[in-house]
């Protein structure tokens, strides 16, 4: 093992980029789970669809990165509405496990479809011109684009957190998470709220996909690969707290980067090891509420 401080710091900054994606995805998963009681196995697939949508917009219509950042979440959100209304809605009265099975099947079907259309190989998506180049941080050259992903990811997560914690809409959402019957009795249309929450959660994954397109290879498996790690992140953070899932996502990205620098072989397993430790020491997760 070679303890090169510059290398460690550099990898940790890059780890933060992954951490931003973990945070965005686990945030969406938590919100959906909180209100719908469904673990959205298809979350990774929506992330992947976000990247493919950005790719298609650029290839077919010549629409660049910045408009895609607005358009893609709208498209993915609309797809989310369709999925919630036609498929997920019929399962609310059943055991939660059926929601998991349904979204797993959905993930297979969508990923299979993308493979049929685009093939298994990665597709290129270029970094927007305005974010080319890199900044010298002293210990590393940080590409502007990666810096943008970290900052934008954090701002995005924090604004979602603010909406949920500090606005009347968020208050209704939190109330419905707590006691849907009571909220409905107050005249709030809970079914519509469930639909929009699902749409918003997957739209977040869609934005993540657009942001990932220039730095990860745009391929059909990208969603499945990341979603399993995000499940571990969610278990570690516990689902009770929005802020907790943001923080956990970022911290685990950092840790992954650190491990990559000091003991590269373990970098793909470190998050799972942390999960095991957390489960033994604090089964409900770092920020989880008591069951």
């Amino acid at each position: 093992m070679d303890f090169n401080l510059n290398l460690i710091l550099g990898q940790m900054v890059l780890g933060l980029v992954n951490g931003a994606f973990y945070a965005i995805l686990s945030l969406g998963l938590s919100i959906i789970f909180g209100l719908l009681g469904v673990i959205n196995f298809a979350h990774g697939v929506f992330f992947m669809l976000g990247a493919f949508a950005a790719y298609m917009l650029s290839e077919v219509f010549g629409i660049g990165y910045w408009p895609a950042l607005i358009l893609v979440p709208l498209m993915i959100g609309a797809l989310g509405v369709v999925v919630e209304v036609t498929l997920i809605r019929s399962l609310y009265k059943l055991d939660h496990l059926y929601g998991l099975l349904l979204t797993l099947g959905l993930a297979f079907a969508i990923e299979g479809l993308i493979r049929i259309v685009f093939g298994p190989q990665g597709l290129p998506y270029s970094i927007p011109d305005s974010l080319r180049g890199a900044i010298n941080l002293g210990f590393m050259f940080l590409p502007y684009y990666r810096a943008w992903v970290v900052i934008a990811g954090i701002i995005l997560c924090l604004s979602v957190w603010l909406v949920i914690e500090r606005t009347p809409l968020g208050a209704k959402l939190r109330a419905a998470t707590d006691n849907p019957q009571m909220v409905q009795a107050f005249g709030i249309n809970v079914p519509v709220m469930l639909t929009l929450t699902y749409a918003a959660g997957v739209a977040l994954a869609g934005i993540g996909g657009v942001m990932a397109a220039p730095i990860m290879s745009v391929d059909p498996a990208m969603g499945t690969n990341i979603v399993i790690v995000v499940f571990a992140v969610v278990v570690i953070g516990g689902m009770g707290s929005i802020f907790g899932s943001i923080l956990t996502g970022l911290a685990l990205g950092l840790l992954e980067g650190f491990t990559k620098a000091v003991f590269a072989e373990a970098s793909s397993t470190v998050i799972f090891v942390v999960m095991v430790i957390v489960l033994i020491a604090r089964p409900r997760g770092l920020f989880g509420k008591m069951a």
Binding site: L91, L102, G105, L106, A107, F108, A109, G112, R115, I116
Partner: peptide, 18 residues
């Protein structure tokens, strides 16, 4: 037919759950 396996499995999953 390659990726059609995955697609079909997914559809079977969804169909049986529903």
């Amino acid at each position: 037919f390659g990726p059609w396996v995955m697609f079909t499995q997914g559809v079977v999953f969804v169909f049986f759950v529903l």
